[in-house]
Design a protein around this nucleic acid. Sequence first.
DNA 1: AGGTTATTTCAACGCTTCTTGAATAGTTGA
DNA 2: TCAACTATTCAAGAAGCGTTGAAATAACCT
Lengths: 126, 126
Amino acid sequence: MERSKVLAALGALAHETRLDLIRLLMPLGAAGMPAGRIAQALGLAAPRLSFHLSALEQAGLLRSRKEARNVIYSVDAAGIGQTISYLLNDCCSDHPEVLAACAHGRAERDRVQGCTAVTASGTVKT
Amino acid sequence: MERSKVLAALGALAHETRLDLIRLLMPLGAAGMPAGRIAQALGLAAPRLSFHLSALEQAGLLRSRKEARNVIYSVDAAGIGQTISYLLNDCCSDHPEVLAACAHGRAERDRVQGCTAVTASGTVKT
DNA sequence: AGGTTATTTCAACGCTTCTTGAATAGTTGA
DNA sequence: TCAACTATTCAAGAAGCGTTGAAATAACCT
């Protein structure tokens, strides 16, 4: 991923409302949610929501599609993944302490739900 | 990590000069580099550099210490790690496609240098 | 066609951030 | 103490970002 795109993505994420949007939409995956219901869920005025949604879309972190009279927004998992990947791999050169912090955050939940390892070949249940 | 700290960290990273600073300092680890040499390396005016360095330090991504007449700046790997961890774990709920993107970025280098896996117990050479 | 709902665009204002040069503070060595 | 070096603070101006309400566009239903 090019640096300019990463910068745009980070700038988009560095805002309370927009981070809320990602957190709200991420669990829904490709199904997403219509703009109106997002506004309702987060208690946002329509123009303000629209502004932030298009900021995230332009940064490659969200996708949108029309369905009837609604516009459905959903996360662009690839875009988000590439952004985090840049930070982790390119920017931090896989610094051991950085990787450890990421694994540690995951460890808490894994203790309950079973361990998940990230390897070069993908995500594997162990 | 609290959300407000993550937002501050993301805001700090979302700037070309500051991302350059992190990328410059990350490989040096705790050893770091004096401000003057950083300015020289990146071709920045002293006040401008100082502004961005303190922005990164206040965001918890950099540390500083005095040595003789120099101020040495070095990365705060824990702060950076926690920021990425928040994005990866809390914000994205370990979405498989996001994890895959991160693993993929690493895969290229691993093919040459041997595979590294992130597990709940830390980073392990395999 | 007319009314209704859903969403975006526009324009204006206020606020914060970034950059620059000048001035200031702290440290070292003669 | 004086001079040299290193780094930060200050002040001012330019630029960009975020919020708001009003207006416009688009799609649907009767």
